[in-house]
Amino acid sequence: MREELAKLKAQLAAHEGLTGHELAGEELGARGGGLFSLGAKSVDAALGGGLARGALHEVLAETVLDTASASGLASVLAHRAANGRPVVWIRDDGVCREAGMPYAPGLAEMGLDPDNMLLVFARNGLDALRAANESAACDAVGAVLIEIWGAPKALTLTATRRLALAASLSGVTLVMMRAGASPIPSAATTRWSVRAAPSSPAMANAPGLPVCALTLQRHRAGPAGHTWNVELRRENARSNAGDSDDEIIRYDACLGDAPALSGGMVPLPSGRPHDAEPETAGGAGTAARRTG
């Protein structure tokens, strides 16, 4: 009931140009319910204001080479959901090996808050899932980001149900990033697939703000199948007013609608098959598709 009410409010706010994020700020007390906006108007509008807190959301890297983008997007979702509370970031050794280790200076530049993260390096998927369950049960946590490589045996429909249940009981939002794997049946409220996309270059042909092609593969509460090109941005500069001697400017990570690409890059039509490519195909497979 309260959740629906919050959703309605968020929709109303979105109409008035307010983001769901700001709304959530007002309603800090009401945990577990409510939506968090992603920041990109087109996506938020399609979601009816944003994504549900206290739920499990899944983010799939389309190919192995999209892992950094998928992880980036997933960490932005976790950051938005946490709304200033700590994020527990669980990554299994497979992701560490293939995609590297989280690097705070870069995360800070994305507008994330590395000083408010608890990093958990899990040996394998099973350990990662157990740590995620434990973390989701702790109400001091704002969001849990769990990153799993491949398809470990422990990752079953039941396991995701357990995560979703833990999330709904505590109000902690869970974001699960998977790379090097294809989708499996899961209890996630939404499932996204992410692919790196060309940025609008900055001056002197420098790579611009990171852009991802974001596809909503599955949405329990609404239509799915649409693809958006979103930019990973840093916004809402606010100074740390609490202690005046330490004027650290903090930023918020958010998504933004990517500007239309010049140079004839056509956004992917919606409704294309969403199966991730075989791991070994890597960039070559993607290249064939994009030039086709």
């Binding site: 995609a99 590297g100 690097y103 870069g106 500069a237 650290i248």
Partner: peptide, 23 residues
């Protein structure tokens, strides 16, 4: 003592450091 991870780039500019690092 913490040395905060502060963004080097200007807001609106792309990050100059990677979010994932290989060691």
């Amino acid at each position: 003592t913490r040395v905060c991870a502060r963004p080097r780039s200007d807001p609106g500019d792309p990050p100059l450091r990677p979010s994932q690092i290989f060691d």
